[in-house]
């Protein structure tokens, strides 16, 4: 699971208000190089939730060099775009879990695939 995907997932356990962001704990992380595509990263600027991406990256030890806020010149700031590219696409969480911030319900990540499915009594 890439942190891009983490940024797009929420808990939907019955009764949960936001269910976002999911707390990530990673027991196995792999770094895999992905060709840098500045246009793609720029398009993601208003599609991701930056504080969540940054905080999650820091929590799994991949958040060095990430500014608190998206810089005003982000679209032309290659150093920033490369740092964002790295945390969005190159950090792969292979094993771990996502925890619902409200209920504590844990969603396992196995072989890099998060399982967001709920049991029948949870929906």
């Amino acid at each position: 699971m890439k942190l891009l995907t983490h940024n797009m997932l929420k808990s939907h356990v019955k009764g949960v208000k936001d269910g976002y962001p999911l707390r990530l704990s990673a027991s196995k992380v792999e770094l895999k190089e992905v060709t840098f595509n500045a246009d793609f990263v720029v398009r993601m600027l208003d599609r991701i939730v930056w504080p969540v991406l940054r905080q999650t990256a820091i929590e799994i030890g991949q958040g060095d060099n990430l500014p608190t806020d998206i810089p005003a010149d982000a679209a032309t700031n290659e150093e920033f775009l490369r740092a964002m590219h790295h945390v969005l696409l190159e950090v792969l969480v292979l094993e771990g879990e996502l925890e619902c911030p409200e209920t504590g319900r844990k969603f396992p990540i196995k072989k890099g695939i998060p399982n967001m499915l709920l049991d029948e009594d949870e929906v």
Binding site: L4, T5, L9, V34, L89, I113, N115, M116
Partner: peptide, 8 residues
């Protein structure tokens, strides 16, 4: 590069 997750 495909990302997948299981969900409803």
């Amino acid at each position: 590069d495909i990302e997948t997750y299981r969900g409803d």
